[in-house]
Protein backbone atom coordinates (compact mmCIF):
# COMPACT_ATOMS: atom_id res chain seq x y z
CA UNK A 1 0.00 0.00 0.00
CA UNK A 2 1.47 3.31 -1.07
CA UNK A 3 -1.03 5.74 0.49
CA UNK A 4 -0.54 8.53 -2.00
CA UNK A 5 -3.09 10.98 -3.27
CA UNK A 6 -3.67 11.07 -7.01
CA UNK A 7 -4.94 14.33 -8.47
CA UNK A 8 -5.87 15.80 -11.84
CA UNK A 9 -2.16 16.16 -12.64
CA UNK A 10 -1.50 12.40 -12.64
CA UNK A 11 -4.74 11.58 -14.46
CA UNK A 12 -4.09 14.04 -17.27
CA UNK A 13 -0.48 12.80 -17.47
CA UNK A 14 -1.88 9.28 -18.01
CA UNK A 15 -4.14 10.62 -20.78
CA UNK A 16 -1.13 12.39 -22.30
CA UNK A 17 0.91 9.16 -22.28
CA UNK A 18 -1.93 7.06 -23.68
CA UNK A 19 -3.27 9.28 -26.45
CA UNK A 20 -1.21 11.49 -28.76
CA UNK A 21 -2.53 14.80 -27.42
CA UNK A 22 -0.61 17.72 -25.94
CA UNK A 23 -0.41 18.03 -22.15
CA UNK A 24 -2.71 21.03 -22.30
CA UNK A 25 -5.30 19.28 -24.36
CA UNK A 26 -5.11 16.18 -22.16
CA UNK A 27 -5.87 18.34 -19.14
CA UNK A 28 -8.77 19.97 -21.01
CA UNK A 29 -10.23 16.61 -21.95
CA UNK A 30 -10.04 15.36 -18.37
CA UNK A 31 -11.90 18.50 -17.33
CA UNK A 32 -14.47 17.92 -20.08
CA UNK A 33 -15.07 14.36 -18.85
CA UNK A 34 -15.62 15.52 -15.26
CA UNK A 35 -17.73 18.41 -16.55
CA UNK A 36 -20.07 16.22 -18.61
CA UNK A 37 -20.53 13.83 -15.69
CA UNK A 38 -21.21 16.72 -13.30
CA UNK A 39 -23.72 18.28 -15.72
CA UNK A 40 -25.64 15.04 -16.06
CA UNK A 41 -25.76 14.60 -12.28
CA UNK A 42 -26.83 18.21 -11.76
CA UNK A 43 -29.72 17.51 -14.17
CA UNK A 44 -30.65 14.65 -11.84
CA UNK A 45 -29.50 12.01 -14.31
CA UNK A 46 -27.65 8.87 -13.17
CA UNK A 47 -24.26 8.17 -14.75
CA UNK A 48 -23.21 4.58 -15.39
CA UNK A 49 -19.62 3.80 -16.26
CA UNK A 50 -19.42 0.11 -17.15
CA UNK A 51 -16.78 -1.89 -15.28
CA UNK A 52 -16.22 1.07 -12.94
CA UNK A 53 -19.46 1.95 -11.20
CA UNK A 54 -22.48 4.19 -11.24
CA UNK A 55 -23.32 7.58 -9.77
CA UNK A 56 -26.91 8.29 -8.85
CA UNK A 57 -28.71 11.28 -7.37
CA UNK A 58 -30.95 10.55 -4.44
CA UNK A 59 -33.46 12.94 -2.86
CA UNK A 60 -33.56 13.11 0.90
CA UNK A 61 -36.49 14.36 2.91
CA UNK A 62 -36.34 16.83 5.77
CA UNK A 63 -35.23 15.47 9.14
CA UNK A 64 -34.27 16.78 12.53
CA UNK A 65 -30.58 17.06 13.18
CA UNK A 66 -28.68 18.19 16.21
CA UNK A 67 -25.74 20.50 16.61
CA UNK A 68 -23.27 18.09 18.23
CA UNK A 69 -21.54 20.90 20.08
CA UNK A 70 -24.53 22.66 21.60
CA UNK A 71 -27.07 19.82 21.51
CA UNK A 72 -29.46 22.22 19.82
CA UNK A 73 -32.03 20.73 17.44
CA UNK A 74 -31.88 22.07 13.89
CA UNK A 75 -33.97 21.02 10.89
CA UNK A 76 -31.99 19.52 8.01
CA UNK A 77 -33.70 20.67 4.84
CA UNK A 78 -34.65 18.31 2.00
CA UNK A 79 -31.70 17.96 -0.35
CA UNK A 80 -30.18 15.87 -3.10
CA UNK A 81 -27.15 13.72 -2.49
CA UNK A 82 -24.89 11.74 -4.77
CA UNK A 83 -24.30 8.06 -4.20
CA UNK A 84 -21.58 6.03 -5.89
CA UNK A 85 -22.05 2.29 -6.37
CA UNK A 86 -18.83 0.55 -7.36
CA UNK A 87 -19.10 -2.23 -9.95
CA UNK A 88 -18.33 -5.82 -9.00
CA UNK A 89 -15.25 -5.56 -11.18
CA UNK A 90 -13.91 -2.52 -9.34
CA UNK A 91 -14.54 -4.16 -5.96
CA UNK A 92 -12.75 -7.28 -7.13
CA UNK A 93 -9.84 -5.30 -8.51
CA UNK A 94 -9.41 -3.42 -5.24
CA UNK A 95 -9.46 -6.57 -3.15
CA UNK A 96 -7.12 -8.50 -5.43
CA UNK A 97 -4.59 -5.70 -5.70
CA UNK A 98 -4.55 -5.40 -1.97
CA UNK A 99 -3.45 -8.76 -0.63
CA UNK A 100 -0.44 -7.39 1.28
CA UNK A 101 -2.21 -5.44 3.95
CA UNK A 102 -5.51 -7.32 4.27
CA UNK A 103 -3.59 -10.54 5.02
CA UNK A 104 -2.17 -9.09 8.22
CA UNK A 105 -5.48 -8.41 9.93
Amino acid sequence: MTDRTITRAQLSEAVYQEVGLSRNESADLLEAVLGEISNALARGEAVKISSFGSFAVRSKGQRVGRNPKTGEEVPILPRRVLVFRPSQLLKKRINDGDTVKSGTE
Binding site: M1, T2, D3, R4, T5, I6, T7, Q10, L11, A14, V15, E18, V19, L30, V33, I49, S51, F52, L90, R93, I94, D96, G97, D98, K101
Partner: peptide
Protein backbone atom coordinates in the same frame (compact mmCIF):
# COMPACT_ATOMS: atom_id res chain seq x y z
CA UNK B 1 -7.75 5.67 -19.41
CA UNK B 2 -9.20 8.04 -16.82
CA UNK B 3 -11.37 5.44 -15.11
CA UNK B 4 -8.68 2.81 -15.42
CA UNK B 5 -6.15 5.12 -13.71
CA UNK B 6 -8.61 5.79 -10.88
CA UNK B 7 -9.25 2.06 -10.45
CA UNK B 8 -5.50 1.29 -10.51
CA UNK B 9 -4.84 3.96 -7.88
CA UNK B 10 -7.53 2.53 -5.61
CA UNK B 11 -6.16 -0.99 -6.10
CA UNK B 12 -2.79 0.31 -4.85
CA UNK B 13 -4.58 1.77 -1.83
CA UNK B 14 -4.15 5.35 -3.05
CA UNK B 15 -6.72 8.10 -2.79
CA UNK B 16 -7.90 10.01 -5.85
CA UNK B 17 -8.89 13.60 -5.18
Amino acid sequence: TIFDEIAAALARGDRVE
